[in-house]
Amino acid sequence: MRHTGRRRSRTAVSVTVLALLAAASLWLVPAAAPQPGTDVAQARAPGGNGRHRGARPVIVPRTAWRAGTIGTAPPGVRYAPAVKAAVIHHTSTPNGYDCASVPATLRDLYAGHAYGRHWDDIGYNFLVDACGTIYEGRAGGVDRPVIGAHTKGFNEGTVGIAAIGTFDSGERVPEPMLDAIARLVAWKLDPRGPDPRASVALVSTHDEARYPKGTKALLPVVGGHADGYATRCPGAALYAKLPDISARAARMQRG
Rank of each mutant, 00 (worst) to 15 (best):
A236K: 11
Y229W: 09
A236Q: 13
N49Q: 14
G170F: 05
A226C: 09
R138F: 09
L202E: 08
A162T: 11
A114Y: 00
R197G: 08
K241V: 05
A45M: 11
E171W: 03
L184F: 06
P220M: 05
D120T: 14
A55N: 14
A73D: 13
T151R: 10
P220W: 04
F126R: 01
I70C: 13
G148K: 01
A149M: 13
G132F: 02
R10S: 11
P103W: 07
P194E: 06
R78E: 15
V146I: 10
Y97S: 03
A247D: 08
G228M: 11
G193K: 12
D190H: 06
W187E: 07
P176N: 06
D195N: 11
L242N: 08
A22R: 13
G140P: 08
G71V: 10
L28K: 10
R210H: 08
P243R: 04
D120C: 02
A41T: 06
G160E: 02
F167A: 06
L189H: 10
K188H: 04
A85P: 08
P61T: 05
V159A: 14
R254V: 03
R192L: 13
T205Q: 06
A45T: 08
R2D: 14
F167N: 06
D168T: 13
V185H: 03
K216W: 07
V146F: 07
V29W: 12
G48D: 10
D227M: 10
E136L: 02
A85E: 07
A24Y: 11
M177N: 06
D207I: 07
I164A: 07
L109S: 08
V222L: 11
W65P: 06
S14D: 14
P194Q: 03
P30F: 00
A237Q: 05
V128T: 02
F126V: 05
L219G: 03
D120M: 01
V83M: 09
G76Y: 11
R138A: 09
L202R: 01
P61A: 05
A149Y: 14
A201C: 07
A33T: 15
A100G: 13
N155Q: 04
Y135S: 03
K84I: 06
K84R: 15
A111I: 05
A201D: 15
Y124S: 09
S92E: 13
A250Q: 10
L184E: 01
A86P: 05
A130L: 00
P75N: 03
K84H: 15
D39H: 02
I181H: 01
I245C: 02
H90S: 12
N95Q: 07
G37R: 02
G137D: 02
P34T: 09
P81C: 01
D120K: 07
A237L: 06
F167W: 05
V185T: 07
A31D: 15
V203E: 13
M177T: 11
L106G: 10
A80E: 01
R254C: 07
K216Y: 07
R210P: 03
I70P: 03
Y79M: 08
A80P: 02
V60G: 04
P174N: 07
G37H: 00
D195Q: 03
I164D: 11
V77N: 04
D108E: 11
L127I: 01
